[in-house]
């Protein structure tokens, strides 16, 4: 209970600070347009009225926190889940491709790591390419993946998921290479004295030793997967998903919608990272981890 309170207080202090700052910036950034509007309308509002108006514009440069909150609340809880406006529906669209891509990425990352740890040639040849793959801007690669796959008849969920895979396999591969190599020399010597085969050493020593590394890298990978899914929705002219909401908001200058979609994306990301964290705790407990 105390630990919870000791976490909540500092976090909410920062949050309060951000909200205050946000309001200040909202007033400052929305003021020029408001002044312009007032001059053309021939009105001279008091300072209080002026500030209230900067925080209630339809298409503000920077929407105020309460406008975003209101939009987020309405589109999450008050519209039908099947509606194209619903943030739940759009989040689900993005989430499904995130999860598929994350699953692909995790499996691919593990397979690559196993290959690198066991085959010297792969260790030498593959690693530079893996690192190089992440230096290519995903925004440039994403449309090509979509176009190429569409040309061979693959459309829908898979191309988007593959962009998530592209981003998420990397942390898993790097983390698992480290994890599979993490057993101490003494443990490896021990297996050697038992004349254990490579397969036995792999399953009985390397795999269990790599589990903490797997979860740490999966936390990074799941967040990267979400970014991949959103980026994948941008160039595809996707009709649904958080990326599509962001794009539509940008077309029609619906800044409040953009921010609400952003909040939805953050919520999804937080939930995903928390889910991986929870899975990690459960597995740690099952593996006899000392309670923290």
């Amino acid at each position: 209970m105390d630990s919870l309170r000791s976490k909540i207080v500092p976090v909410s202090t920062i949050l309060a600070g951000i909200v205050v700052l946000w309001y200040v910036f909202a007033v400052v950034l929305n003021a020029p347009f408001q002044r312009d509007l007032d001059r053309r309308g021939g009105v001279t509002p008091t300072t209080t009225e002026f500030i209230a108006e900067t925080l209630a514009q339809k298409k503000p440069t920077l929407p105020a926190p309460h406008q975003v909150a209101e939009n987020f609340f309405k589109n999450t809880f008050q519209v039908k889940i099947t509606s194209a406006r619903s943030l739940v529906y759009n989040s689900w669209v993005t989430l499904s491709s995130t999860l598929l891509g994350f699953a692909f990425g995790t499996v691919l990352g593990i397979l690559i790591a196993v290959g690198i740890v066991h085959v010297t040639t792969l260790d030498k040849s593959l690693m530079p390419w893996i690192i190089a793959s992440q230096t290519i801007p995903i925004l440039a690669v994403a449309p090509m993946i979509i176009v190429v796959l569409a040309a061979v008849g693959i459309t829908g969920l898979i191309p988007k998921a593959l962009i998530s895979t592209y981003l998420s396999f990397f942390p898993v591969a790097v983390g698992m290479v480290k994890g599979l190599r993490s057993p101490e020399l003494m443990h490896l010597d021990l297996m050697h004295t038992y004349n254990a085969s490579r397969t036995q050493t792999f399953w009985k020593l390397r795999v269990p030793a790599s589990v903490p590394f797997l979860f740490a890298s999966m936390k990074v990978a799941v967040a990267a997967s979400l970014v991949g899914a959103i980026v994948g929705e941008l160039p595809t002219g996707a009709v649904a998903g958080i990326g599509a909401k962001l794009l539509a908001g940008a077309y029609y200058s619906q800044t409040i919608d953009i921010w609400a979609a952003l909040v939805a994306g953050s919520v999804v990301a937080a939930l995903l990272v928390a889910a991986v964290g929870l899975a990690s705790r459960i597995v740690e407990r099952a593996m006899g981890g000392r309670p923290a």
Partner: peptide
């Protein structure tokens, strides 16, 4: 073989 440390698998 018994090593300097117990070298038990923690899991």
């Amino acid at each position: 073989y018994v090593f300097q440390a117990a070298a038990l698998f923690p899991w």
